[in-house]
Write a protein that binds this DNA or RNA. Structure first.
Length: 873
RNA sequence: GGGCGGGUAGCUCAGUCGGAAGAGCAGCGCCCUUACAAGGCGCGGGUCACAGGUUCGAGCCCUGUUCCGCCCACCA
């Protein structure tokens, strides 16, 4: 039979397979979930990518993992819903559109709210589908009929319902307090949206506040000189002998000519730090704010929304805060009050989105009360209703929730869910309502207008696991698929998203939103560096898919996904799986040369057939165990090892003597076995490499339908067969031994070898003469040890390979010396162990037995090696 | 300041129950062999970060040290 006797192409074409199967799957709705269908529910809600976004490696990994789980569970008989969607991404999207407009010379505020939002919606309609199209290139098996968007009608209703209910319950309130203010984005931010830039080189600058009575001065230090315009106290420690007598007196503000009280505050002031005296700016510093409240100090706001000095700053009014900083330092120096500066490493709070230095500002905002919500969310994980994988992330989750502060949920933006509160012009009352209010709930006046602000984008994301299933309606989907099975995400949004879904799910649904949380690592470049546009080391998943195909690309990510580890991406890694794919494809072509139609179940199987089937069963079992434990890299490694090292390296070679031989039971058995293994392999691979697996499935004789709806293989389909495993293990040992001897003695592969051994081994290997000949080029005979031979132990018996060619004596001596050293080491190790009373008394019996047997064998081998070595000396 | 993770072959990483250290890639040698040279066969390569401790026995358990990465908090 010739090599090209197959209709299959010489190489697998991933792009052709994608083009063939992706549209078919989508059209035939095989991934559409049906709540009325049988099967235990298994639901995953996608972490919705930002509509502004385009696919990056993090998305690719995240979705490859979800797809493996969804496809696997679907094939395994579960009623699977993988629900896709996108997030409106409030600030991010508004910024992108603003920037686009600005490039055309259009400012958001000139347009007005409605016109601007029209632009955003138009933009969303045009480019919002990009990331969805890109996800499809990965081959994700989402139910696109249920695709949701955080600002679609249903989800917006859920947002309102949530807001109104929590407001009714007193968990959402409006308050005026110090918040993180983004002076560029012109909006309040939550604590989480403030990022700290570490180790910024700044300076700690000291200046003197003269005492009002002229009796001296108090020196204070600051990293933010401009805030002195808002100072309304100087604080000292009440027990500090240097200052305690000054408490109650005042200092004079040297620039604004105000009196400023000196207060004693044990909480704020550490007498050992700096001068032991602290300037207090209650309106622009979180610690100082607390001091202000404790001592009833005025909250003097000195900045405008864009962080310029306001009228309170007297001569500095109108200056940017950093310009004011320089000017104030100069002026203080001119007054002779500068007391020096020293370099100071500090952290700088910056807006996650705009990058602007965040300014604490007193502002009226909406807040969500966290304590009553966070406590059950902690308990749910403590009691195991939700489990993190790897579990160490639970600590991170706890730590944040246990002392989380109230969540500022209002944003001074236009793009997002507008707050369902109406302010009354007549009485000043606030009406919170599910329906658009037309009259004040307090005084009945019709002069009501809706709150201008929108909600933090994470407010709607927090509802995602149930809002997407129809909440607040009681839909069949919600009943069937909530709680979801697993949330797959990155550690960076445990606080932003995971924790918030937990407490919202518990609050509204009375049950956790997901049973498992799988936290995957970050995809880095091959040097372990974070991918970033500025570094230019970003790998575009679409280009990688274009270059290598979706199957190999996905499998590379899966193979790198170890629990609790970041992933280092390298094109070399993809090549591993491209080669794997080719290897499996070539083996599949081999099958096609020999199997033209679905083979009938044979009367009997040979030992190699039984062996590979048993090995396939083990592989299935291990892959299942790995997936159950979210050990994706292990699953990939098992598939790789089975396919390459067992199926290709051994079984295909074993099968050749039958397949190329006479027609008969052996050939029938081999054909059936080969077909059966691929029948399972295609299904096993389908969750990982769906297009490749589909190509295998469709071209396998006797199959119908698509692979993605077949049953994932079960270990019980492949009975254990210890006899076959032992028999083939012995044969493999014999083959490898002869190959090694051949390589060591530098005997060309085409030179046939003969070998002798004792009767027991000869009988055991007799049925496998063909395999020994084809795979090791050796013929086994009985009889005594030949004069010139290389001897090795196989299955506890000696095997003597007759050396026909000229033996390189020097090399042989070297080899024997190496071998002697190895065996002597082994003997000495085993003697030491068995001479150890503790070991003999406490080691497991099996280990003790094994050690004794090994020692006896080693001693025998040693004697023989010594004899052989002496003969060569 | 508090917390988490990591340090195992040249590189990237496994190592589950404490019992002689594993894989892929890279390297070296041999081979175009009729599924596959995108391949086959064989080989070499280790102070398991360091120091103590527990144990008959430690990569694994305990204590300490050190280096790298990350998170949180604070920073007058």
């Amino acid at each position: 039979m010739a090599a090209d006797d197959t209709t299959l192409p010489a190489h697998y074409d991933p792009h052709a397979a994608f083009a063939r199967y992706a549209p078919e799957w989508e059209a035939s709705a095989v991934f559409r979930a049906d709540p009325d269908a049988p099967g235990a529910p298994y639901c995953i809600v996608i972490p919705p990518p930002n509509v502004t976004g385009s696919l990056h490696m993090g998305h690719a990994l995240n979705n490859a993992i979800q797809d493996v789980l969804a496809r696997w569970k679907r094939m395994d008989g579960f009623n699977v819903l993988w629900l896709p969607g996108t997030d409106h991404a409030g600030i991010a999207t508004q910024w992108v559109v603003e920037r686009t407009l600005r490039a055309q010379g259009i400012e958001r505020r000139d347009l007005g709210r409605d016109a601007f939002l029209e632009h955003v919606w138009r933009w969303k309609a045009e480019s919002g589908g990009t990331i969805v199209r890109q996800l499809k290139r990965l081959g994700v098996s989402c139910d696109w009929s249920r695709e949701r968007f955080t600002m679609d009608e249903g989800l917006s209703r859920a947002v309102r319902e949530n807001f109104v209910r929590l407001h009714e319950e007193g968990l959402i309130y409006r308050d005026t307090r110090l918040v993180n203010w983004d002076p560029v984005g012109l909006t309040a931010l939550s604590d989480l949206e403030v990022e700290t830039e570490e180790n910024v080189q700044g300076e700690l600058w000291s200046f003197a506040y003269p005492l009002s009575d002229g009796s001296g001065e108090i020196v204070v230090a600051t990293t933010r000189p401009e805030t002195m315009l808002g100072d309304t106290a100087v604080a000292v420690h009440p027990d500090d002998p240097r200052y305690m007598h000054l408490i109650g007196k005042t200092v004079r503000h040297p620039l604004l000519d105000r009196a400023i009280p000196i207060v004693g505050d044990a909480i704020l002031v550490d007498p050992a730090f700096g001068t032991g005296a602290v300037k207090v700016t209650p309106a622009h510093d979180f610690n100082d704010h607390e001091v202000g409240k404790r001592h009833n100090l005025p909250m003097l706001v000195i900045f405008t929304a864009d962080a310029k000095v306001n009228a309170e700053g007297g001569p500095y009014a109108g200056l940017d805060r950093f310009v004011a900083r320089r000017k104030i330092k100069e002026d203080i120096a001119a007054l002779g009050l500068d007391r020096g500066a020293k370099p100071h490493l500090m952290t700088l709070p910056k807006s996650q989105r705009s990058g602007a230095v965040v300014e604490p500002m007193v502002s009226t905002q909406w807040f969500m009360r966290m304590k009553p919500l966070a406590t059950p969310a902690v308990g749910a994980v403590e009691h195991g209703f939700t489990t993190f994988h790897p579990t160490q992330w639970e600590n991170t989750y706890y730590a944040w929730l246990r002392d989380v502060k109230d969540w500022c949920i209002s944003r001074q933006l236009w793009w997002g869910h507008r707050i369902p509160a109406w302010h009354c012009a007549a009485c000043g009352g606030v009406t919170v309502s599910r329906e658009d209010a037309t009259a004040c709930g307090r005084c009945g006046s019709a002069e009501v207008s809706q709150d201008e602000d929108v909600l933090d984008t994470w407010f709607s994301s927090a509802l995602w696991p149930f809002s997407t299933l129809g909440w607040p309606e009681r839909t069949p989907d919600l009943a069937r698929y909530y709680p979801t099975a697993v949330l797959v995400t990155g550690f960076d949004i445990i606080f932003f998203w995971v924790a918030r879904m937990m407490f919202m799910g518990l609050h509204h649904m009375g049950h956790v939103p997901f049973k498992d949380v799988y936290i995957h690592g970050l995809v880095r470049d091959e040097n372990g560096d974070k991918m970033s546009k500025t570094k230019g080391n970003v790998v575009d998943p679409l280009q990688a898919i274009e270059a290598h195909g979706a199957d190999a690309f996905r499998m590379t990510l899966i193979g790198l996904a170890g629990l609790g580890r970041d992933l280092l991406w390298s094109d070399k890694r993809v090549e591993t799986w491209v080669r794997f794919q080719n290897k499996a494809w070539q083996a599949y072509r081999f099958l096609h040369m020999h199997v033209k139609e679905a083979p009938a179940t044979p009367a009997a199987l040979g030992p190699m057939d039984r062996w590979i089937l048993a090995r396939a069963g083990t592989c299935v079992e291990r892959v299942r165990a790995a997936l159950d434990a979210y050990r994706f890299n292990d699953a990939a490694a098992e598939i790789y090892a089975f396919t390459w090292y067992e199926l290709c390296d051994w079984y295909l070679e074993f099968s050749k003597s039958s397949l190329y031989g006479e027609d008969g039971p052996a050939k029938d058995a081999a054909r059936w076995t080969l077909w059966t293994v691929f029948h399972a392999l295609a299904r096993m691979l389908s969750p990982f490499m769906p297009f490749f697996a589909e190509e295998l499935w469709r071209n396998l004789p006797g199959t119908t339908g698509t692979c993605v709806t077949q049953a994932w293989p079960k270990a019980s389909d492949f009975p254990r067969d210890d006899a076959a495993l032992a028999e083939v293990a012995l044969l493999q040992e014999a083959i490898v031994t002869v190959r090694r001897i051949r390589s060591e003695k530098e005997i060309a592969p085409r030179v046939p070898l003969a070998a002798t051994c004792d009767e027991a081994l000869r009988v055991a290997l007799a049925p496998h003469a063909a395999a020994l000949r084809d795979l090791a080029g050796v013929t086994l005979g009985g009889g005594a040890k030949p004069a010139s031979a290389a001897t090795a132990v196989v299955g506890g018996h000696e095997l003597h390979v007759v050396l026909e060619g000229v033996l390189d004596v020097a090399k042989e001596r070297e080899r024997l010396d190496r071998e002697l050293e190895r065996v002597r080491k082994s003997v000495s190790f085993l003697e030491g162990r068995l001479g150890n009373e503790g070991f003999v008394a406490r080691a497991p019996a099996a280990l003790l037995e094994k050690s004794r047997a090994e020692l006896a064998a080693d001693r025998e081998t040693l004697a023989k090696l010594e004899t052989a070595r002496a003969a060569l000396a």
